[in-house]
Design a protein around this nucleic acid. Structure first.
Lengths: 189, 189
DNA sequence: TATTGTTATACTCTATAACTATA
DNA sequence: TATAGTTATAGAGTATAACAATA
């Protein structure tokens, strides 16, 4: 635990992102002095969750991303390929590869949109529905493990606070604007 | 906001990682039904923080990773290049490039380790110290913005709970084991 | 002419392997 | 022989650009 750092000055030893906004590798925290740091804790928890989720979704083509496509397609009904890409924040070319794999696995089908023959509607198969139920279960288990150090009351408190922070973060960041896109999609339908 | 999802089944529409454990692009949440999900919230908050940190550390060679190197070097004193790499969880080849840039910017120097002429000690310069103070300030501001939706009491409560979750996550995951490496380093010195 | 989706290509980041200089 | 560090190379993953089909 870098247990050898009595000379840390203030928050200088903080752990920021542990990999920038683009890296991948795990990275480990360095211990005592940094553990009071938000960025460090956030990074550790997030990566732990990401790792657990990736493990739970290992057999899904495209991993977590593939899962998101399936979940969205099931939850919101058949959607056009490009809308799906925009909503999930993935590049449209990536979406092509992703769907190639998912289709090959028999989890979705590409159907021509009767309203616009250029577009393809992504429709989940029955097999997809089944799989999602199982994945749901696994992800729930993973969540519980992550929050294992908190009792029930703390857990719900933590979830609530995190939710509020997330809501604000999401509101501030005008990223891809899935909301607007979704809205448009309704109008179009 | 995917405001159009009255038919969501259970937690099927949850947002996992929004990019897998390896992706990069931002990705946006889809709204109402998923906002009760841990993975979604975690992803949003983490990415928001990562983004803010990256922006705050924009002028640091190597970005957040470069910052970590500097912070560690300052906090723990001159360390050997390879130990630093192991501790921060970066590949040793990446560390070479990283240090090339940091050295070019006059933030660190590579000095031959008198105890082992193969090794290089990474020593921060005075300029590095100055820069770190400024970066500390910026990062603190970024943190405050992230937690802007919480009042003081909630903020400290959130930090505490997150810390506990992080401690456990960090303990469970036997990743690179910076602790052991650090321990070894002491014995060696 | 603009847009959906595909393909091919290029770019970025990271890891692997080979090399040097020391030990 | 093994290790610290460098360099060159190859490998994912992503984004850009050109293309076909349709609007």
């Amino acid at each position: 635990m870098t247990s050898t750092s009595p000379d840390v000055k203030g928050r200088v030893a903080r752990e920021v992102t542990r990999r920038g906004a683009a890296g991948v590798e795990p990275g480990v925290a360095s211990g005592t002095p940094v553990e009071s740091d938000l960025g460090w804790a956030l990074g550790v928890v997030f990566r732990r969750y990401a790792k657990a989720a990736a493990a739970a979704l290992e057999d899904v083509p495209g991993g977590p991303r593939g899962y998101q496509v399936l979940a969205t397609a099931v939850a919101e009904g058949p959607r056009r390929q490009l809308d799906l890409a925009a909503q999930l924040g993935v590049d449209r070319t990536v979406m092509t590869y992703l769907l190639d794999d998912l289709e090959k696995a028999g989890l979705v089908q590409r159907q021509a949109d009767p309203a616009d023959r250029r577009a393809r509607l992504i429709v989940p198969t029955a097999q997809c529905q089944e799989l999602l139920c199982e994945l749901e279960r696994r992800l729930g288990t993973a969540e519980d493990e992550i929050l294992g150090s908190l009792d029930e009351a703390e857990r719900s408190s933590f979830r609530m606070l995190l939710q509020r922070v997330a809501m604000k973060a999401n509101a501030i960041d005008p990223v891809h604007n899935a909301c607007d896109l979704a809205e448009e999609a309704i109008d179009r339908a």
